[in-house]
Amino acid sequence: MSDRNTLIRSLHDIGLAAWFGGSLMGAVGLNGATDTIRDPERRNALGATGWARWAPVSAAAIGVHAIGGVGLTLANKGRLVGQRGVATTAIVKTALTGVAAASTAYSAWQGRVQAEAGLNPTDGAVNSGPDTPAAGATARQHLRIAQWITPITTAALIVLAAQQGEQQRAGQVVSGILGRARTALS
């Protein structure tokens, strides 16, 4: 059996990179660019079109990352049980992946609520006029915060993936296994 997991590690990392990069570019680039368009109809159309084009790529990135993550978990199940610290990192990473997926879905939903209310989903302004539907104004406030949760949590996932890579160094494996053994014997 091979001790390399190049394919599943690549799926994990490429999916995560696309998820992080796309969410950050959308929050900064797309949303910022649409704010410069004065005509509300053009601004709404551009924002809605940009996010609609990104949605299937984002879904694919999340799926590829998840497939890679499951593969890495299965490939490292012995280390999860036998090496101190590995299971904790995996649990934290799984929880953060859930937060990132939930924030991605929530942001998409809030964007749709704004679009249905005739508001620009990419508009960073929280102030709403007297003619702004209440649902749209609330969605705008929620989206302003939610759009940043995805890039923040996926950045944290990148850091945890790096930590997991470090945990696979020979010295870390040995000290983690010995540490687990000492804990079991005491």
Rank of each mutant, 00 (worst) to 15 (best):
M1D: 14
R4G: 13
N5Q: 13
T6A: 15
L7C: 07
R9C: 00
R9W: 09
H12W: 08
D13C: 08
D13L: 15
G15H: 00
L16E: 04
A17H: 02
W19F: 06
F20Y: 05
F20T: 02
G21V: 05
S23H: 12
S23I: 01
L24A: 12
L24P: 04
M25D: 05
V28D: 04
G29N: 07
L30N: 04
L30G: 07
N31V: 02
G32S: 09
G32N: 06
A33K: 02
A33L: 12
A33F: 11
D35P: 00
I37W: 09
P40I: 04
P40Y: 03
E41S: 10
R43T: 07
R43V: 04
A45E: 10
G47L: 03
A48K: 09
G50R: 02
R53T: 01
A55M: 04
P56S: 06
V57N: 00
V57P: 03
A60I: 06
A61I: 00
A61M: 01
A61E: 02
A61P: 00
G63D: 03
G63E: 03
V64E: 03
V64Y: 00
H65F: 14
A66D: 00
I67N: 00
G68Y: 01
V70W: 11
G71I: 07
T73H: 15
L74F: 14
N76C: 12
N76E: 14
K77E: 14
R79F: 08
L80V: 15
L80S: 11
L80W: 13
V81M: 08
G82N: 15
Q83L: 07
R84W: 07
G85P: 09
A87Q: 15
T88L: 14
T89P: 02
A90H: 08
I91G: 08
K93C: 03
A95K: 09
A95D: 05
T97E: 03
V99K: 08
A100W: 04
A102V: 11
A105M: 08
A105I: 11
Y106C: 01
Y106K: 04
A108S: 07
W109Q: 10
W109Y: 13
V113A: 10
V113N: 06
A115W: 01
E116S: 10
A117V: 06
G118R: 09
L119A: 14
T122P: 01
T122M: 14
G124L: 07
V126A: 12
S128L: 02
G129C: 12
G129M: 14
D131G: 08
D131K: 13
P133Y: 05
P133I: 09
P133V: 08
A135S: 15
G136H: 10
A139D: 11
H142Q: 15
H142I: 13
H142Y: 13
R144T: 12
W148I: 06
W148R: 10
I149E: 09
T150Y: 05
P151R: 12
P151C: 13
I152S: 09
I152N: 02
T153P: 09
T154P: 04
T154F: 04
A155T: 11
A156P: 01
A156D: 03
L157E: 07
I158G: 11
I158Q: 04
L160Q: 08
A161W: 00
A162Y: 11
A162D: 07
Q163G: 08
Q164P: 01
E166S: 12
Q167E: 15
Q168H: 10
R169Y: 06
A170M: 05
G171V: 01
G176H: 07
G176A: 11
G176D: 05
I177T: 10
L178N: 08
G179W: 11
R182Y: 12
T183L: 12
